[in-house]
Design a binder for these strands. Structure first.
Lengths: 156, 156
DNA sequence: ATTAATCTTGACAAACTTAGTAGGGATTAC
DNA sequence: GTAATCCCTACTAAGTTTGTCAAGATTAAT
C-alpha cells in the first residue's frame, strides 16, 4: 500500500482546514505555519485535493481553500486515495496487472489474503471522517477486530 | 507499511514448503521451479527466514529447508516481519523517530489513527498461520470488521 | 490601473527503496 | 573427490518519494 508523508501531511492539513474554514477561506501560508509544512509542498498537495473534489479553491487576494463538502462526508480513504492513489497491498489480484507482478498460479491463497487485508483497511479508513478527527472521536472506530475481543489497542 | 514482493514471495514459498517438507528437506531449486521464482532471490529470502528462526536449513547435498516449528505456530505477521521488517504506517508515533519524520504537534489525532490502523493490520496478520493458508481456510478470518456487519468481502 | 496576495502548473533533483543479479565460499552425502 | 546444496556479501538498475523552484494567472483592495 503506502501511506506516504504526502497523504499524512494532507490529512493533517485537512483536519486543520476543517476547523478553520468555517470563518472563510484559509490560505496556504497560514496552514503551512500552523502545521509547519513547506508552502510549496502544501501547494502540490492541495492541487491534488482540489482535482479530487475534496476542497474548493478561491483564487486571488483573500483567497484560500475551503472544504468542498461537509466534514462528515469526507473520509480518510478519500483523502489518501486522492494523494497517494488507491491503497494496494499487491496488484497480484488485479487481472490486468497480475501477469507482470506475480509469478504465482491462477488460484493462490495468498492472493486472497492480500485482497482481504486491503478490503479491511479500505473499510476502516472509509469509516473515519474529517469530523471524527477534528472532534477526536475516533477511538471507538479503531478498536481491533471484535472477534478476538482485544481492547485498548490504543493507549492514547 | 509495505508488503513487498520479497514478503509475498517468501510467504508463498513457505506455504509450499509447509506442504512439501513433511517428506524431508526441500531444496531451493525445487521450490524455485514450483513457484517460478529465481533461486538467487529465494536464497536471499530464506537467509532472512532462517535468521528469524522460521525455517531450519540442512546443508550439503540432499540438504534443504524445513519449517523450524509447527505450521500452525508460524503466522503471516512473523513472516512479513522477518522479510520486510515490522509493518509501519508511519513512524510518527515512534518516540525515537518522530522528530525526524513528523512536524506535527506532540498530540495529534492522525497519529492515533495511523497507530490504530497498524495495530489492526498486525492483529489480522497475527491471526493467520501457514496452516490456514495451506488448507485454504482463511475466509472466516478475513471478514471485515464485525461492527458494520459487512459480509462476503471476498468473493473467492 | 497597480499592486500584493494568492492559487496554478510543470519541471527538476537528491535521497531512498525495491527487485533482482552475481560470484565466490562452506558444508555434506555419496 | 565431487556434486549438490546452503551461506554471505556486494552490487546495480529502476522506480518512488519528498520535497524545491520558478514562472504564471486570478482577484481584492486601493
Amino acid at each position: 500500500m503506502n501511506i506516504s508523508t504526502r497523504g499524512r501531511y494532507g490529512l493533517r492539513a485537512l483536519v486543520e482546514l476543517s476547523t478553520l474554514s468555517r470563518e472563510g477561506p484559509v490560505n496556504l501560508r497560514d496552514l503551512s505555519e500552523k502545521q509547519k509544512m513547506s508552502i510549496d509542498y502544501l501547494e502540490q498537495i492541495f492541487n491534488k485535493l482540489k482535482k479530487a473534489g475534496i476542497v474548493q479553491s478561491i483564487r486571488g487576494a483573500k483567497g484560500g481553500y475551503v472544504l468542498a463538502s461537509d466534514e462528515d462526508k469526507i473520509t480518510v480513504r478519500q483523502v489518501i486515495n486522492a494523494l497517494d492513489g488507491p491503497i494496494s497491498i499487491s496488484n497480484c489480484y488485479n487481472p490486468n496487472l497480475r501477469e507482470k507482478s506475480c509469478t504465482g498460479p491462477a488460484t493462490c491463497v495468498t492472493r486472497v489474503l492480500w485482497q482481504g487485508l486491503e478490503n479491511t483497511i479500505d473499510e476502516m479508513l472509509s469509516d473515519i471522517t474529517l469530523k471524527d478527527l477534528r472532534t477526536e472521536k475516533i477511538n471507538s472506530k479503531l478498536r481491533g477486530s471484535c472477534k478476538n475481543g482485544k481492547k485498548n489497542l490504543l493507549r492514547s
